[in-house]
């Protein structure tokens, strides 16, 4: 299937982790269908208590249902493992709340097809963008961007959930270090430290169909603390591996 001049391989997988998204999922899956990507669409229902799984199945998506809620990262990792068990050559992930535009998937996949990247991040902050981010989140994004730079990884949007990756990345992300809650700059750094090439491509994003429930209040502090610890642990593990090699 050709979209904007890019032909997606038939072994491309589109992952959509979803938790209680029965309300927003139909619009997202209709947008995916309209984009005519020609890839398998997999919705990972992360233990939803609403009709998320039924809605996804009704729209033709393959549904993987967790027996209970594992978290956003846990749902993504299930999708990665699904891709690894099968023949997926490229995996694209997007959110179920409608903030990502599926017509931009080919632009994300292109650097992988050209052999220029292993992991492509859709960035809201490359090129012209009307995306509005709160002051605190903006500070956090800048802080983690600066931190990533210290590890020689320059990403403008380390919290973007709109990404494309090849099997080499899947193999890294299927390991036990991958967090069940918020996989952000820590896992990007893990991929980078495994020698995988991480690049960004500009994408348009809306603020999402509903307010984010991921952060807020004390969770912001926990997020920063946990992310710093995770980055440190990932760095330490790699250092030990290098010593042992």
């Amino acid at each position: 299937m050709s979209v904007e001049g890019v032909i997606l391989p038939s072994t491309t997988l589109l992952l959509i982790p979803a938790f209680n998204e029965a309300e927003h999922l139909p619009a997202v899956l209709e947008a995916v269908a309209s984009a005519r990507l020609g890839c398998e669409v997999v919705v990972i229902d992360d233990g939803s208590s609403d009709a998320t799984a039924a809605v996804a199945a009704r729209h033709g998506a393959r549904v993987i249902r967790h027996p209970f809620n594992l978290g956003y990262g846990g749902a993504l990792q299930t999708g990665y493992k699904y891709g690894l068990h099968g023949v997926a050559s490229i995996v694209v992930q997007m959110d179920a709340d409608g903030q990502h535009d599926p017509t931009q998937v080919p632009a994300l996949v292109e650097p992988i097809l050209r052999g220029e990247a292993d992991l492509v991040i859709g960035s809201r902050f490359l090129g012209p963008s009307s995306y509005q981010m709160g002051a605190l989140k903006s500070i956090g994004r800048r802080f983690f961007r600066a931190l990533a730079r210290r590890f020689e990884l320059d990403v403008t949007d380390p919290t973007s959930g709109f990404q494309a990756m090849n099997r080499a990345v899947l193999e890294v992300y299927a390991e036990d270090f991958y967090p069940s809650d918020y996989p952000d700059v820590d896992v990007l750094l893990a991929a980078h430290r495994h020698g995988l090439r991480v690049v960004e491509r500009p994408v348009r994003m809306s603020a999402g169909a509903r307010a984010s429930t991921l952060h807020g209040g004390l969770r912001d502090f926990f997020y920063v603390y946990k992310m710093l610890l995770s980055i440190w642990a990932t760095g330490g593990r790699r250092a030990r591996r290098r010593q042992g090699a």
Partner: peptide
């Protein structure tokens, strides 16, 4: 890991 395996096997 077990929950993910269950989900994948069910799929």
């Amino acid at each position: 890991n077990l929950a993910q395996e269950v989900a994948l096997l069910r799929a």
